[in-house]
Design a binder for these strands. Structure first.
Lengths: 290, 290
DNA sequence: TGATGTGAACTCCTTCACAGCG
DNA sequence: CGCTGTGAAGGAGTTCACATCA
């Protein structure tokens, strides 16, 4: 990343765990940069507003109030107005916003007036899904290159694009002016793939592999980790159940912060062994028809 | 949601936009609830630490310092120690943490000692990927039910599980004690699917469809939106390029916050029309072999 | 009148820096 | 002595509430 702190939880703590891979502190404190630095969190929401607005435009809605748009996007109107204020003042007091204008301004802000060609590396199930994902080309993100290791896949068209070998990443990505790389390989190959993408000039990476990628600071990595998402959900189930328990037996339920995990220490050990294959699970350890 | 605010950017602003679907404000201010409420952002990172720790355990590493673990997880050590402090004091000063103990405690905290059966709805490319994703069962999230509309898929086993009809969601999910539902349908069917899952008692939903789901407050939704992730990356490319421009021509680059978007207003209009299919794009609008 | 745009309060999270303990 | 655990300081993001203007 470049500046800004974290902002996790993607909405919330990371999410598959969407959230940008924490590249850590560093932050350029540079005093300059006035008001226009849009909070990371706001950027994510702008993308959501854009989707909602597009839907409205398709239904020939020409004007929306902050309240309407907020409800449709699942946020409160104050937050929405503040988010929009980061990109300028395009509303009309007493009336609302013109859908077309907002769409245009958000697209401009998000840099969507430029085309961003995407390369997908790792053509397993997930790679197939990405290559065929209709939401990309329709939103200005054409998938223009596919890569894999499997010799059987070379040249085979997936979603209309023939698969190239991973060794050709640098050449092909440069030729096709790829700006975004999606890594859908198993964990072990991910870092190497990443390095090649960076070498090819790719500065934005969407990482589906369950590893923390090491990249130069000018490269932006966003991570999507399904297992992490699941675990976050799991946490909420657990917490909820626990709260319920506490309500029936006020104080005395679970060991919350055991200074010295006694019984829970024992449970921990057993739990530890029931866990398996750590950093090595493939993002898509399957073939298209099992 | 239940308590807590947002926490976006998940790491950063949402991601596919991981981040939990903002269910908005409400927050139960209840003064009680002592120190043990783990920040949403910390929960997401705990899941990451768990993965890294598991990898270390597989390599027979028995002890780690906060510094080592922090580097491996891509965060700074102070943050890591604070995160771990939320779940208790399991380190040894002057030494570090025992890998096995930490794994057990994190698993306990995340509620991973309990099995969470997953249902996948929408067996398109993405659904296939999810059904076959090796990372789920190996982490205690067995995929135990699959649903789709397509009559041709009924009974066909995908990843070992036969596909059931969407109309049977309530019955099947109840029978198999599903606790997590993954919605990988096109946008239009998502809300209905969601309603049925909720009716079946599912309280955690991972939503891949590009819509904001409406759910009762006791249900936790996390959203993964690939298009949003892409747009966030796009924003960073744009900002970066713009910064570079500013460096060459100090002040005078792009219209940053045009009180009255003049030229940018014009550009906006054109940009608006180049956008297409709004909220209706399927998450996986493709068949397994195109 | 009615909805935007925004300063200011507030809450949540991160970072610092050091006391404390093995 | 080294590393953990944490109070306190500092930022970032959210919410409030109202001045402002079409």
């Amino acid at each position: 990343m470049t500046a800004h702190g974290e902002g996790v939880a993607d909405g919330d703590a990371g999410n598959p765990s969407t959230s940008r891979q924490s590249s850590e502190a560093v932050d350029e404190p540079e005093a300059r940069e006035r008001a226009r630095v849009i909070p990371e969190a706001a950027v994510a929401r702008l993308a959501v507003y854009l989707r909602v607005l597009s839907g409205m435009a398709d239904q020939d809605v020409s004007t929306v109030s902050s309240e309407e748009l907020a409800v449709a996007a699942g946020v409160n109107s104050a937050k929405l107005r503040k988010d929009l204020s980061y990109i300028g003042s395009y509303g009309t007091r007493g009336v609302g916003y013109e859908v077309a204008v907002l769409i245009g301004q958000i697209e401009r802000t998000l840099g969507l007036t430029r085309k961003h060609s995407v390369a997908v590396v790792g053509i397993g199930n997930l790679g197939h899904a990405l290559a065929n994902y209709g939401g990309f080309p329709s939103r200005g993100f054409p998938v223009s290159a596919l890569f894999d290791l499997d010799p059987d896949l070379m040249g085979v068209p997936v979603g209309g694009i023939p698969v190239d070998h991973i060794d050709d990443i640098v050449r092909v990505c440069t030729e096709r002016e790829i700006t975004i790389g999606a890594i859908a390989t198993p964990a072990k190959g991910a870092q190497e793939v990443c390095d090649r993408l960076v070498e090819a000039g790719v500065r934005c990476i969407l990482n589906f592999a369950p590893v923390v990628l090491q990249v130069p600071e000018e490269v932006e990595v966003r991570k999507v980790d399904l297992a992490v998402e699941m675990q976050i959900l799991s946490f909420h189930v657990a917490r909820r159940g626990q709260e319920a328990t506490e309500l029936s037996e006020p104080e005395a339920a679970g060991p919350e912060k055991p200074e010295n995990g006694a019984e829970s220490g024992g449970a921990a050990m057993t739990a530890a062994d029931h866990r398996m294959n750590a950093g090595g699970d493939p993002v898509d350890g399957m073939v298209v028809r099992p």
